[in-house]
């Protein structure tokens, strides 16, 4: 998780980097120049592209069992086939689509909840905040996975939408707490008061004044939410609690391990699902590290290059104005 709460620790180290504390949105620009961010974003974009273009690039129907079973990768079947004779590549492509859909959907749901339950009451204060904070804390002590399993068991035939809901509705509490504590440190800053005094509405103040000042934390929380949701979905599918008729990274793993992929040495069947999860997780982690680097002043490099450049520019300017 990005450590952006106030950037610096105690007095001494805070004093070591004062001007940077104020450069709040410059990190967006710096992010574009960061290697980790670029690699992470590249992988992320590739997955999104696969998901979006799935119907066009899948080549076969992922459900069709018309192919020879357990065939190794070949020109016809790039990733080989399953024990039932399905095309693994088609499964991977469509699985990417449904896994990302569940991931994004659940993350949006839990983010909305985190904002409504964590941020807004923190900004409003008073009884509402007390009630919501207690509610969040209760939710936090209930372990997540068992809760999901129970919820999934109640919904007999879960589909993509119910999965999203189950994961989203159970996964907001930790993030609500993080967002709440950051909101609390901002809510009574003078500039927020100034906005309220101009007659701005609560939501305007929250979205226009507070959110931009915690954007990096918010983005990190969103990415963490996506990753969490994708892992949760895989977990549920793997336990057979998802919708096994729908291909996803999790159900690919489930069928592979239950269909005896290991016994038959069909590594091509087992690998894509797990690898996709690992790779996607890596891309989010890379982006998160990058975000940490560009927003946390203590991890930043001094700009010694710019000094020389400025000195040269100054010499030129001095010549121009004849000083």
């Amino acid at each position: 998780m990005a450590n952006v709460t106030h950037g610096a620790s105690a007095g001494p180290s805070a004093a070591a980097n004062p001007p940077m504390r104020h450069t709040q949105l410059a990190w967006v620009r710096r992010l574009g120049k960061n290697r980790k961010a670029r690699v992470g974003l590249g992988i992320f974009a590739a997955f999104v592209l696969i998901a979006v273009l799935a119907p066009a690039i899948a080549r076969y129907n992922p459900g069709s069992t018309n192919f020879p079973p357990l065939a190794p990768p070949s020109a016809q079947h790039w990733f080989g086939t399953t024990g039932l004779g399905q095309d693994v590549y088609a499964q991977f492509v469509w699985g990417t689509r449904s896994s990302l859909l569940v991931g994004f959907g659940a993350s949006v749901i839990s983010t909305v909840l985190a904002v409504v339950i964590g941020m807004y009451p923190a900004y409003r204060g008073g009884w509402l905040d007390n009630v919501m904070a207690t509610f969040t804390n209760i939710f936090l002590v209930i372990p997540g996975l068992p809760l999901m399993i129970v919820a999934a068991a109640y919904v007999h035939q879960s589909n993509t939408l119910t999965l999203m809901l189950i994961i989203g509705l159970t996964g907001w509490a930790g993030r609500a707490r993080v967002l709440r504590s950051q909101t609390l440190t901002l809510a009574h800053r003078e500039f927020v008061w100034a906005a309220r005094l101009t007659g701005a509405s609560d939501w305007r103040v929250l979205v226009r004044e507070i959110l931009p000042n915690m954007l990096s934390l918010f983005v990190a929380s969103l990415m963490y939410g996506i990753l969490g949701a994708i892992l949760a979905e895989a977990g549920l599918e793997f336990l057979g609690l998802g919708n096994l008729t729908q291909v996803s990274w999790g159900s690919m793993l489930y069928w592979a391990s239950n269909g005896g992929a290991e016994l038959n040495g069909a590594w091509w069947w087992l690998l894509p699902g797990g690898l996709a999860i690992a790779l996607f997780g890596t891309s989010l982690a890379l982006m998160n590290f990058a975000l940490d680097e560009v927003t946390n002043p203590r991890l930043r490099q001094p700009a010694s290059r710019s000094g020389e450049r400025l000195a040269r520019a100054w010499q030129v300017m001095k010549g121009d104005i004849g000083q």
Partner: peptide
């Protein structure tokens, strides 16, 4: 009430939103 009362804050380093330019800060009011 707040449309009729305004406050200038003592702590000037906290009084402006760090992410907005002077023009952006002032255009709304």
């Amino acid at each position: 009430y707040w449309t009729e009362v305004q406050m200038i804050f003592q702590d000037v380093y906290n009084a402006l939103n760090p992410v907005y330019t002077v023009e952006q800060q002032l255009s709304f009011p």
